[in-house]
Design a protein around this nucleic acid. Structure first.
Lengths: 353, 353
DNA sequence: TTGTACGCGTTATCAT
DNA sequence: ATGATAACGCGTACAA
């Protein structure tokens, strides 16, 4: 069954009269000034420093602005003051809530402070990040929010040259370009391993996506096990982004391959959800027959997967902190902390109703 | 269990030397021109119209650009050419995949064409949309992507005055400001009602969020039922955004209130998911005892809710179409279609494994 | 409190 | 193929 209303065809509306290259809204400070009977600079002041202007002219200027529907041109203002009031955010994707929530928090907070966010989607390939970065820097943002701490030499150079606050997020590093906000993915993996050992799990498996941070979590997990003498860990890699389907496949592959794990660590939640489904389909009890640990707290409710334990972190907080730090830098009161660890939490869930 | 690595404190890095108000990256066209031994305009052409410049100077210019790490200032260029190569996207939120996927598709496609996306988050309040809109228009975007077709008189006026392509999305209207892409929410609701009637459901209930489009779906649903003589429909409203928790509560409220529906239409998927969980908790079989119809195709896999039927539409397609239409307008070949119905699909799922 | 002169970095226009 | 000049719309610096 499809939508009814067939595609309508309407004649081009008034927007017809728009000329390319020549903006219709040719209303400038001058026009307002003329109408208000003052000079352009007075109008500028009426907008930016109302206190300095007399009540009288203020009202007449405001009237003129209203009348003409004047919209200030921040391009021009920014050109002069070299402040674009733009903050660029470059993330791999906003299709999943992973980065979207951080960007949302960032945007919300910056918006309140009079900044707009320029969105760059880099995918998961570094080459694309470089392209986007160049494009974005041409906009002369006042600050920039990046995902991850791995950037090409060229990118680092450009960022340094831009001379603006740079926030690298989602990960930690002793050598941030400027500021880093995140947590240790290796330690997150270790925490999962530690938990499994405490639970006494014996036949341990890992299903991991293959982006850098997922691999860090995997490595932390494996390292911790190795340090306790456990090296017999079955491993399956999937492509990034990890999805429910890929999680199902990976677990099926493990089970079909003769591996009979009693526990599996999935380096991202959608994989874990898929694994749980595959387990259920095969009649395995979760977590009785197979314990599943995920990462990222994507399962939006414990009710959906009451048996999925997960390592969770506050995605919104990354955006909020980033905004706060950026505003502090731009406000001239830089924070002494250049590396902020927001930590993570291991959430254990038992099967409930 | 928390992240280990304690918040580190490092001394402010080189970024210290950045002076506010005075950009460190003072590399301009002139600098490049000087180094390359040509005039500024030649450098500009080497960048924007390489065909017009001789191979020889082209290479020397490129070398100079590389050497100085020159980044063009699109603010200045835009000021002169009155083309910002910026497209603004104003959506209520990107925290859920609802609008995020459309924005992602839009951004992807525009990015390939050399446009950047300015992100505005309006929340679900109209007052905020106005604020954001003004802020965004100051950036002189070349086009704008909006959510919904309800905008304040002031907003419409500003948009018209801007003289740029305006895409209103998610809904249809005979009188778009410029272009509209969406589908009929009323018809979507009607489709759900029709389906319920065909299935022979008898005791019908509705759980709806209270944003405008959710209410349109509810109204379409109720109208269709009313037209067939059915007016005994139990109704519960929740706040927007509809969430799993609110869906649970609403169904619980219905059941506790003595209503025993055999079918419920939820105007957005998270509500439907919550309803299913509440039903399961109470030992009701879905869809045997209670059929649930959702909207939006958020349940990311049929495996999670094999019994959830839903009305689905292509969120990415909205963004893609918007990008295509915007690029066509900007390219001087406007589409004659000003209202594009992307339709919806009713997906029926039976309980499976 | 208000105004004038100038410049921000780039591109359009018109030459050469 | 390349260059000189002006101008985009606004804010800074200084003056009145």
């Amino acid at each position: 069954m499809d939508g009814q209303m067939a595609p309508q065809i309407l004649p081009p509306p008034q927007h017809q009269r728009r000329k390319r290259g020549k903006d219709a809204s040719a209303v400038t400070l001058k026009d307002v000034a003329r109408l208000a009977g003052v000079s352009a600079i007075t109008v500028s002041r009426a907008i930016n420093q109302p206190d300095v202007v007399s009540e009288e002219t203020l009202t007449s200027v405001r009237k003129a602005i209203e009348q003409l529907g004047y919209v200030p041109n921040l391009l021009a203002g920014g050109l002069k003051s070299s402040q674009s009031r733009l903050v660029a955010a470059i993330v791999p994707s906003i299709g999943t809530s992973m980065f979207a929530e951080a960007v949302e928090a960032l945007t919300d907070r910056l918006s309140d402070a009079g900044y707009e966010v320029l969105l760059g989607l880099s995918g998961f390939a570094q080459s694309r990040e470089d392209r986007i970065l160049s494009a974005v820097l041409s906009r002369k943002p006042d600050a920039i929010f990046l995902t991850g701490i791995d950037h090409s030499a060229r990118a680092r150079q450009q960022l340094l040259a831009a001379g603006i606050p740079v926030v690298e997020s989602w990960d930690l590093t002793p050598n941030p370009i400027d500021i880093a906000i995140g947590f240790s993915h290796e330690n997150a993996g270790r925490a999962a391993a530690k938990h499994f050992l405490e639970k006494g799990y014996d036949r341990i498996a890992v299903i991991s996506a293959s982006d850098k941070r997922a691999l860090q979590r995997r490595d932390g997990f494996l390292k911790h096990l190795a340090e306790t003498g456990r090296t017999d860990v079955a491993l399956r890699l999937t492509e990034t982004p990890g999805s429910l389907e890929r999680g199902r496949e990976a677990l099926a592959d493990l089970l079909n391959g003769g591996v009979q794990p009693d526990s599996v660590f999935c380096t991202v939640d959608p994989l874990a959800q898929g694994a749980i489904i595959e387990a259920q389909v095969r009649g395995l009890d979760v977590p009785g027959d197979l314990a599943v640990m995920g990462f990222g707290n994507f399962s939006f409710s414990p009710h959906i997967h009451p048996s999925l334990s997960t390592i969770s972190f506050d995605r919104r907080k990354i955006g909020e902190l980033a905004a706060d730090l950026i505003l502090a830098e731009l406000g001239g009161t830089p924070s002494p902390e250049r590396v902020v660890d927001i930590g993570f939490t291991l959430v254990e869930r038992q099967s409930t109703g």
